[in-house]
Design a protein around this nucleic acid. Structure first.
Length: 752
DNA sequence: CGTAAAACTTTTTTT
DNA sequence: AAGTTTTACG
């Protein structure tokens, strides 16, 4: 592209509308782009980067673009690459957290940390907080760990230090105590040479404020800064950006106050509402033409959001056709709701109307995914759940990662303690407590205490076992210099016998765990390949950090054909031709928390979340709800969501509401156990990436007439096999479930 | 010390 | 309902 004549390059900007062009051409000085949903803001950002490089002669490495997710960063980089050619490689496109980690890896030693610090996830934070509470004799009935961490996180979002918190507390005893705990928690993090998520931002700001020359070097480097999803930045992130931009003031922020949905995470909507106050010379561009949705969908979204009072008045418009009405369906319960949604998708697919990847099922809470997952399994529909229990939160993964962390940063007591007795080395709780006490007394790390185990009083027989562990870790550490990340992991797996132990167990569960471990190994390989391609070093710290910062949504592969199941929050920034919003009930969405909240702005945030959901839909939007629903083991009776009632009736098509019958499924089928089994089988398969894409096996190990077993339907006889383009379609007559047609790649039939 | 069973929470949304 | 933590016992 770069070598093309200039005239041709100009054309790419002329495909933008007037407002979009205005945003692209305004390159110097602060710029606020108020971009409504579906108004093409990503296009604007990518074209703006291209314009800077191609027309303004800005060096790519002088540009920083901050996105909300790694996936968005990756997509943006690809798009810029397509416009300007290879040059975009040196544009920094990443999330706040990744950007900060990259800076801290280089300079955090100036704040008294080691440059190979560990990043603590939510689980680690909780473990650490428990320990802090124990040490400080905190009554965890009075101060719950979760609440304490939330309070600390809020403080960090606002750049409030423990000292400041204490000062602000005044005579409030509780607040004072929290400040003390905050201080102790921070000390504990430092002792472990660890940072939590919030620290990544806070410490970078601290670094900038304490080290003028570091800040200056980054100010020089990032002369043009762009921030996406600006409405969801918090005070600390704002500070980070304004420090960086304060020299050249070429700061372009893009956001939509109607899509601000992360207040609970510290997002400060004032950042976007007050941008013009902070930068009086800022230019403001509004993008109000929507290119994504049908007129009906957009009208519904506009009507719902107009019930909010605290917002910048605006009304999106579109030239798109009216489209279908919004579908609304009410059901007896959650089972029927899920059955309908999955059935509707299956029907659309049968009729050739859609691909699975065109569909998304959105809900308010992660727990709601379960019913849809079950129905997908039953209907043989490929799906991916975004969010919920993280891959990296699984026990086997955390165990192995803890080994890697220990090798990387022995000061990380949490990691060391976790693996000390995994696999079983006969080192129990009593011994761990004794070592810990000794370490505390001597003011050394847990690992260092282990190294001198023989000097610890009353440790007795355990000393020799500990010695074995220390020797093992030391040998890993020395190998780590010469080994690749993958080799280190393989070494850990081999020498601990972790997989061997699981193999011996030989249950559905242990097999799934082994699959997960294989997946982790392949992630190390992918990591090494990516780093090699970018010419960067593939070290252990880098791998661990990538894992800590990767969000579930980042792993969604648009090349694969599956239905996406996720929360409304995760859906932000995405779009789908067919969107289902499930659980549209007062008490679920809006959540009961905000219905009963005294703070009216909570309801407004919930409404914005609904607005985000509606505006994800391009062609069709279906809203569903249930009259009764099981929530945490209790049956709830909820009325239809107020948000549904805020949509004008003439935009909605009600369909036949509530099914009268309840076809009882053969009850073996919906038992919990078989669900778990199917899920395991599915997950195991899902981790072999090619399974959805190409899928077709060379041949099947069964034939017509053979007896096979299906995880859910049981034993049956193969009646027919049809070779399709993507996969074999197999017809099986099951003893109990009757005749079923299914895809071989998906059904995982076993010949018996 | 390790396992199994029982009791006790949990309740939004996530980088 | 499901996950986590405590308790009891071998």
């Amino acid at each position: 592209m770069r070598s093309n004549p200039k005239g041709e390059n100009m054309n790419i900007y002329e495909t933008l509308n007037d407002m979009q062009q205005e945003a692209v051409y305004h390159t110097e000085g602060p710029l606020l782009i108020l971009a409504g949903a579906g108004s093409g803001k990503t296009r604007v950002l990518t074209h703006r980067i291209a314009y800077l490089i191609e027309e303004k002669g800005v060096q790519p490495w002088n540009i920083l673009a901050i996105t909300f997710t790694n996936k968005a960063a990756q997509e943006m980089r690809e798009r810029v690459d397509r416009i300007v050619g290879g040059d975009a490689g040196s544009v920094w496109v990443s999330t706040f957290h990744s950007t900060c980690v990259r800076i801290l890896r280089r300079y955090i030693d100036r704040l008294g940390y080691d440059n190979n610090f560990t990043i603590y996830d939510t689980d680690d934070q909780k473990t650490l907080m428990k320990e802090v509470c124990r040490k400080m004799n905190v009554d965890t009935k009075l101060f719950k760990e979760r609440a304490l961490l939330a309070a600390i996180s809020h403080a960090k979002d606002e750049l409030v230090t423990p000292d400041e918190m204490e000062r602000n507390a005044g005579g409030d005893f509780k607040e004072k105590r929290i400040a003390e705990i905050y201080r102790e928690y921070q000390d504990a993090l430092r002792r472990n040479n660890a940072l939590d998520f919030d620290d990544l931002i806070v410490k970078t700001v601290e670094l900038f404020q304490n080290c003028g020359e570091v800040l200056e070097s980054y100010q020089e480097r990032f002369r043009y800064i762009m921030v996406d999803e600006y409405q969801d930045t918090n005070t600390a992130q704002f500070k980070f950006v304004s420090l960086l931009a304060s020299k050249y003031e070429n700061l372009c922020v893009v956001g939509d106050d109607d899509q601000s949905i992360y207040k609970f995470r510290g997002a400060n909507i004032g950042n976007i509402l007050g941008f013009e106050r902070v930068f009086p010379q800022a230019k403001v561009v509004r993008l109000e033409q929507n290119y994504r949705s049908t007129q009906n969908i957009l009208d519904a979204a506009n009507e719902v959001i107009s019930n909010n009072t605290e917002r910048k008045e605006k009304r999106l418009w579109t030239e798109n056709p009216e489209g279908e009405k919004i579908h609304f369906r009410q059901f007896m319960n959650g089972f029927e709701e899920a059955e309908y949604v999955i059935g509707d998708i299956a029907k659309g697919r049968r009729e050739g109307k859609l691909n699975y990847r065109d569909c998304a099922i959105l809900y308010r809470t992660n727990a709601q995914s379960r019913l849809f997952e079950e129905k997908c399994l039953l209907a043989n529909i490929p799906y991916k759940i975004v969010g919920g229990v993280n891959f990296y939160a699984r026990r086997e993964i955390k165990d192995l990662l803890s080994y890697m962390k220990t090798v990387d940063n022995a000061a990380d007591d949490l990691a060391v303690r976790r693996i000390l007795n995994v696999p079983k080395r006969g080192i129990g709780a009593t011994t761990i407590t004794r070592v810990q006490n000794y370490a505390d007394e001597m003011q050394i790390s847990f690992y260092d205490a282990l190294c001198t185990a023989d000097k610890i009083p009353s440790i007795g027989r355990a000393a020799s076992k500990i010695e074995g562990f220390v020797t093992f870790i030391q040998s890993l550490k020395s190998k780590a210099q010469a080994y690749t990340v993958e080799e280190i992991l393989e070494e850990i797996i081999d020498l601990t016998g972790y997989v061997d132990e699981l193999k011996a167990e030989d249950t559905e569960e242990s097999r799934a765990r082994i699959e997960n471990i294989d997946e982790l190994v392949s992630k190390t390989v992918t990591y090494q390949e990516t780093m090699a391609a970018e010419g960067r070093e593939a070290d252990l710290s880098g791998f661990l950090e990538e894992i800590a910062l990767i969000a579930d949504i980042d792993t969604v592969d648009p090349g694969q054909d599956y239905v996406l199941l996720m929360t409304l929050h995760s859906a932000k920034g995405l779009e789908f031709p067919y969107v289902y919003m499930a659980g549209m009930e007062d008490g679920i969405f809006p959540s009961s928390m905000c219905i009963f909240s005294s703070d009216l702005s909570d309801m407004e945030e919930e409404r914005r979340l609904c607005y985000v959901g509606i505006t994800r839909a391009m062609k069709e939007l279906t809203l569903t709800c249930a009259q009764q629903r099981m929530v945490r083991g209790e049956t709830q009776y909820n009325r239809v969501s107020r948000f549904v009632r805020e949509i004008p009736r003439e935009l909605v098509e009600m369909g036949h509401t509530i099914r009268e019958h309840k076809p009882k499924i053969p009850e073996e089928a919906s038992s919990r156990n078989s669900y778990m089994q199917m899920r395991m089988a599915f997950q195991a398969k899902a981790f072999q990436p090619q399974n959805f894409k190409v899928t077709k096996a060379e041949s099947l190990d069964y034939d017509v007439g053979d007896t096979v077993r299906h995880v859910k339907f049981g034993v049956g006889i193969v009646k027919n096999i049809v070779e399709g383009g993507r996969d074999y379609e197999v017809t099986v007559d099951f003893d109990k479930a009757g005749v079923k047609k299914m895809f071989a790649g998906f059904a995982k039939l076993k010949k018996i």
